[in-house]
């Protein structure tokens, strides 16, 4: 029962984050909201496992955490450098100057 209450809270937060992801004026707002959606998905997974008395799903939660961060960082890296695998690239530097 108590997990049901917590799940309701997480669902409400999920809905609010989706609202921000849809409304967000800049892409960063959307990214922040999607990061929050990912966290909510992890908490939902864990709480749902406890609600149905099968908390063994948590391994997948760990995967989600890592994926969430990789996704966010990939997009952010793209934003800052315009590329993901930008290491030393003389041609591109020429183009930027």
């Amino acid at each position: 029962m108590m997990f049901a209450v917590a799940i309701l809270a997480v669902l409400a937060a999920l809905a609010l984050a989706v609202v921000r992801a849809l409304a967000g004026p800049t892409a960063f707002d959307r990214l922040l909201a999607v990061n929050s959606i990912g966290t909510s998905a992890i908490m939902l997974l864990a709480l749902f496992g406890f609600l149905t008395d099968r908390p063994e799903f948590l391994d997948i939660g760990i995967t989600y955490v890592l994926l969430n961060m990789i996704g966010t960082l990939a997009v952010l890296k793209f934003f800052r450098y315009g590329a993901l695998g930008h290491a030393q690239d003389p041609e591109r530097d020429e183009a930027l100057r």
Binding site: V18, A21, L22, R30, A33, V34, I37, A41, N68, V75
Partner: peptide, 14 residues
């Protein structure tokens, strides 16, 4: 299209 990519990530999590 950036926003589309980001929203697709949200779709996948949901």
């Amino acid at each position: 299209l950036f926003a589309v990519v980001v929203l697709t990530g949200a779709y996948s999590f949901l």
